[in-house]
Design a protein around this nucleic acid. Structure first.
Length: 563
RNA sequence: UGGCCGAUAGUGUAAUGGUAGCACAGCAGAUUCUGGUUCUGUUUGUGAGGGUUCAAAUCCUUCUCGGCCAGCCA
């Protein structure tokens, strides 16, 4: 059909495997899964995995399951189960009816454990955790068999039953796979399959006091669900032989295949759950969904659109080498999306009063403003203009450097959508601080242009003073000052950016903004992309936070010259 | 000096024996009622040595560097 017109995009190594499997007839459809443990909030690294799993399934007309790996009741909570579902949906993915929980398989898993025992492939061990570690050997020395390794099947069965019945306290017994204590891969040295935990599970309550381990549960869950390609991160590479052992020994007809890829690392951020928890717990940020956090809930509040995250995920690709993606690429994807859809509005964040001396005292007129030049259907709105206005303080310089083409004494600029104005005088207070600018306007320049076609290089945004809505605006910046936090200082907490949150008081916004509903993506003209934070906004009083700056070569150049 | 995996511009990722490409970042310019967007141009790369071949990022080999593994976590 449209084959010729479509550019042939190169495949990543996972797609290559899938296409081979489809071509060879090994599979006629594919099934993937996203398997979070509900023990915390999802972050941008999980977003990569979500996009990869759901996106790949979508691409090949298959399906992707959302499965919670809830095998450790001590760490897991209902709250996380809900937030994770919300995050996946927000990213734009749909598991339809395929929502699963490893805990739903507890009975099935238990029965397979019985099978393994009967086959002589598993045994109940009474060694303590410390002893098991000793017996395991080291990276360079083989392990030794546990004294319980050759316990008779009947005895194993009986003990396992009693474990299940709750006869033993935590840690007294464990069910172990009987594989190879001399394997160079430590995961194969008789790994634990079941442990005793007298803990209440968020979903199964007190029905069980033995819980299966990840290495046992995960491959079998994949098998039960007919997962064809089980995508996980690199650190599970060493577990693959065990994954294959479990699916084979279970004698379950479907054999899934585990494929590992490199997890996402991003400059200027940390992805470790432990550190993120510390940031929240010790008050470095305000919450899990603090807009500075790399959590999905954080970036959602920050005003990053889900489409941008998906585009980002697409662009970073997927491979097997450890890598760290430039944060600038994420911001690029955010700007690219927001440029298309964010309406342009005017907000003066650091106001400087401008008085148009030749404009009638009580006159107010309304000028028409295009909402989004990138969107032909974006429409226009009317903005009040009057004798007294605010412009950005940084848009005026008394003694401007070269290439400064904003306002200064005797110079003319354009007020966006309105008129040309010329500055005549800067009013100062006793301390020498400029308090107001006296300007004149050209009545023939209404709308921001003139018949004579004279060039006006500078354009400023502005707000009519009597109509302005005065409010605070929150400016967020990177949480860390270093590309790799802690790389040089040894502690990521020494590299925190103490300027990561600033509340700007007394900002002057165009009046229509007071009506902005929560969750609006906006561009404050020349200042950046802003978002009405759904968490902080109330009816009639949206709270705007900065999502990202605009690219700004001028201020970058000024900063470079300073330093 | 155990095992497994990896190494391509600054960053990320293609090229699977036949012209090393794309994106971001950087730089320079054009356009612009946002110093935004858009457009054009451009700097920079196959970790090292050896081998096979007419031809190697790609195959073989040695080395170097990096990551992961000794939870009854996932």
């Amino acid at each position: 059909m449209a084959e010729n017109t479509e550019e042939k995009r190169s495949l990543n190594f996972i797609e290559r495997i899938i296409e081979d499997d489809l071509a060879s007839g090994k599979h006629d459809h594919i099934v993937t899964r996203f398997p979070p443990e509900p023990n915390g909030y999802l972050h941008i690294g999980h977003a990569k995995s979500i996009c990869l799993n759901f996106g790949t399934a979508e691409k090949y007309g298959g399906r992707c399951h959302l499965r919670f790996d809830d095998t450790n009741p001590e760490k897991e909570e209902m709250e996380y189960i809900e937030s994770i579902q919300k995050d996946v949906r927000w990213l734009g993915f749909d598991w339809s009816s395929h929502l699963y929980f490893a805990s739903d398989y507890f009975q099935q898993l238990y029965e397979i454990a019985l099978l393994l025992i009967r086959k002589g492939k598993a045994y109940v061990d009474s060694l303590t955790p410390e002893q098991i570690r000793e017996y395991r050997g080291t990276l360079t020395e083989p392990g030794r068999p546990s004294p319980d390794r050759d316990r008779p099947v009947e005895e194993n069965l009986e003990l396992f039953e009693r474990m299940k019945q709750g006869e033993f306290p935590d840690g007294t017994y464990v069910l172990r796979a009987k594989i190879d204590m001399a394997s160079p891969n430590l995961n194969m040295r008789d790994p634990a399959l079941y442990r005793i935990k007298h803990a209440s599970h968020p979903r199964t309550g007190d029905a069980w006091c033995i819980y299966p381990m990840y290495d046992y549960t995960h491959p079998l869950s994949d098998a039960f669900e007919g997962i064809t390609h089980s995508l996980c991160t690199l650190e599970f590479e060493d577990h693959r032989p065990l994954y294959d052992w479990a699916t084979a020994e279970s004698e379950y007809p479907h054999q899934p295949r585990q494929i590992e890829f490199a997890r996402l690392n991003l400059t200027y951020t940390v992805m470790s759950k432990r550190i993120l928890l510390t940031l929240v717990r010790d008050g470095y940020v305000e919450s899990w969904d603090d807009p500075r956090m790399p959590t999905i809930s954080g970036i959602r509040r920050r005003g990053y659109p889900p489409e941008a995250i998906r585009a980002f995920s697409e662009r970073i690709g997927v491979a097997k080498s450890n890598s760290t993606v430039d944060f600038a690429l994420l911001e690029h994807c955010v700007r690219e999306e927001l440029n298309k859809r964010a309406n342009r509005v005017m907000a003066v964040l650091d106001p400087l009063k401008v008085i148009i001396t030749n404009y009638p005292e009580d006159q107010v007129e309304h000028v028409e403003a295009v909402n989004n030049p990138e969107d032909p259907d974006g429409g226009t709105r009317m903005i009040p203009f009057s004798r007294e206005l605010y412009i950005e303080r940084e848009d005026f310089m008394e003694d401007p450097p070269k290439k400064f083409f904003r306002l200064s004494p005797g110079r003319e600029i354009r007020l966006k959508h309105a008129y040309y104005i010329t500055c005549n005088e800067a009013i100062k207070d006793e301390s020498g601080k400029i308090t107001a600018l006296l300007c004149t306007y050209d009545p023939d320049s209404r709308g921001g242009w003139t018949e004579d076609g004279r060039k006006v290089k500078g354009t400023s945004h502005w707000v009519s003073a009597p109509h302005a809505w005065e409010t605070d605006v929150i400016i967020y910046d990177k949480l860390f000052t270093q590309e790799i936090p802690g790389e040089h200082t040894g502690s990521i907490f020494d590299d925190l950016n103490d300027q990561s949150k600033q509340v700007l008081k007394g900002c002057m916004l165009e009046p229509s903004l007071q009506e902005a509903e929560p969750g609006r993506y906006l561009q404050f003209l020349r200042k950046g992309y802003f978002f009405s934070d759904p968490k902080l906004s109330g009816p009639g009083c949206p709270v705007f936070i900065r999502t990202a700056t605009l690219k700004d070569p001028w201020s970058k150049k000024m900063k470079q010259q300073k330093s």
